[in-house]
Design a protein around this nucleic acid. Structure first.
Lengths: 349, 349
DNA sequence: AAGCTCCATGGTAACGTTCCCATGGATCGA
DNA sequence: TCGATCCATGGGAACGTTACCATGGAGCTT
């Protein structure tokens, strides 16, 4: 609130103050070796005296590199995407790169607007969770880019980073088996969603590998919301239910809803019904019991996406699709009814 | 993946193609009126033929405006701050402005690094949740800026946007009173935190206004975490507790912990103990019962912060500090034990 | 001592815009 | 019909940086 000049120092101001040419200043700043100690010294002093700070706009204009990356995700308010953003942010910061963050709300129009903004800002590349189906635009991007998330599936030829659903499903089925639930019911999303097919395919493959007939698995369908999960669980509880009383739910929101339905039916989780979620949202830690779930590597996805993008920009593109492993988070919604531990309830908090 | 030229069209390319000078193109693009219809037409056609897109780097360099704003928050992964970011994003997009988002992790060093990055990127202004105590740097920012969040309190002379704690506390105390809990226990954060003092002061003022002796209120101290809230609730339940069995908890995480403690003690919420939270985190919607809480206007804070900042950049600074009202979210953790409704339990889901 | 290399430095063009000024044709009033 | 005004357009400078080329002095070799 004190001083007034408010005019940023330029490289020329520094040069004048140091009594050298701007070329020399530029060389010092670039860390060039052919500089006399005296010149370097005077320049450095002038820099700190003037509070000079390199103008990235000018650098970008000259070099064609803005030092900016774009990130377009569905909603920064969604904890999974926030994790992705955080990972990308941290990784980018290491290379002195800043991130422009946009939320598309799964709206193709907004997505297009944001991509235009990115092009105008001359970002060096973009990380995108694609919502639009027709990316004939794909090369009209005019930008290096990497896709992230499951919707990237639709573009098999494009470099993308996502979570390894097949591995996650194996992880889940194995822990269920180990706890004495060889044939859990499944609660899936709507048929229209690609993620559902992938999940189901992985379950089938796993069953085949473990000599279980996938047809015996009860399948309930819902819509990825808490309320949907609650209703779907109600239907499950109302029906006949062979085998162990466990449900593998395809996302955490539905799992939380299922837990509520169990309580509403006068039953207890995990003693009467075991629930395994999938996503790793923070809210799962606060339910009662805590939700045992399979956590997607959100942060890692952000990190790897930035790394792929930087590699691509540098001209040595990694290719193909990258699937990062998920992780089991045990919190207490899984009972152990295996022969070896007939009474124990899996711990967790 | 098809075409190769990959060289972005410049205004000169457009001019050549349209057979006019770059000045004319610039005028058309700027929407100037003194343009012949024919020229405008040819320029527009050339623009869409070349896929020309204005280079914001060059614009910024020429005009001194980058069209970028900086946002420095503690952690984009924290739902409250994600809401703030989202509000800021949406508001900025309306003015064709993009947001650079950084997470400081409440670390003064990271904050400083991020501010340097913002200056180099020549953002037009910054929205900051300040962590460093000594901002003698304050004017060394060399940037228009607006503070957000409660830590902005420490800089009373600076333009800031935050939530109206006093109003929130009144709201909470009033709903508690109305439900028959005239003298709830309070669960606060650590003494070191400014937010605590403010919360407590507001409670006292409200008590005085309602002719209640604030001294009769039980006060329990904790640390803003779930686990801390659980332990603090344990202490409350272990002690003697006059008056109605209700707790006004200073943040939602602690409130969720308190709810767990109630269940662990073999009691029920809200029948035995009513809990009122403060924050409005999403997890509160998934607990059982749902957490009744007072929601901070995160998104609005982001919106208003951008508006203040834009005003300041435009040279008509709003001044002083802006406090936005909070909102009661009823979900079911508050019993109604007032005389008028002796049995009812406040609804909510 | 002449010619060579090497190194520290300075000058200048270029990146893509926008803004100001100049120009020249058309239109108008007297 | 001539000068004044207006309007559409073109030319060029400037924003701050970096990369390339030029220069001149010091030190080396033969």
């Amino acid at each position: 609130m004190k001083n007034g000049p408010r005019q940023r120092a330029t490289i020329i101001d520094v040069a004048e103050r140091a009594g050298v040419s701007k070329s020399t200043v530029a060389r010092v700043l670039a860390g060039s070796s052919n500089i006399s100690d005296e010149a370097r010294d005077r320049v450095l002093r002038a820099v700190s005296a003037t509070g000079y700070e390199r103008n990235h706009l000018a650098v970008g204009m000259r070099s064609g590199r803005s030092g900016l990356l774009g990130l377009v995700i569905p909603d920064i308010t969604n904890p999974f995407w926030a994790e992705v953003a955080r990972g990308a942010q941290d990784r980018a910061a290491k290379d002195d790169i800043s991130l422009l963050v946009f939320s598309s709300d799964w709206d193709a129009g907004k997505e297009a607007t944001h991509l235009r903004a990115l092009r105008r800002a001359r970002v060096d590349g973009a990380i995108i969770n694609p919502v639009a189906d027709n990316f004939d635009d794909l090369d009209r991007f005019g930008l290096p880019f990497v896709f992230i998330g499951s919707s990237a599936e639709r573009f098999p030829d494009t470099l993308s980073v996502g979570s390894d659903i097949a591995q996650a499903v194996r992880l889940g089925m194995d822990i269920l088996l180990q706890r004495g639930h060889p044939a859990p019911a499944l609660m899936l999303g709507p048929r229209s969603r690609l993620a559902r097919a992938r999940f189901l395919r992985a379950v089938h493959e796993h069953c085949v590998a473990r000599d279980v007939d996938p047809e015996i698995l009860l399948v309930e369908e819902s819509d990825y919301t808490v309320e949907g999960g609650r209703r779907a669980m109600g239907r499950l509880l109302a029906g006949t239910w062979r085998g162990s009383r466990a449900v593998f739910v395809a996302n955490d929101l539905m799992a939380l809803g299922a837990m509520i339905a169990v309580r509403e039916a006068g039953l207890r989780c995990p003693e009467d019904i075991s629930i395994l979620g999938f996503d790793g949202i923070p809210a799962g830690a606060f339910s009662w019991p805590g939700l045992t779930t399979i956590e997607k590597p959100g942060r890692q996805i952000g990190v790897r996406a930035v790394e792929c993008l930087l590699a691509q920009i540098a001209g040595r593109p990694e290719h193909g699709r990258i699937f990062l492993p998920c992780r089991l988070v045990e919190r207490g919604s899984l009972a152990d009814v295996s022969a070896s531990a007939p009474i124990r309830v899996a711990a967790g908090r």
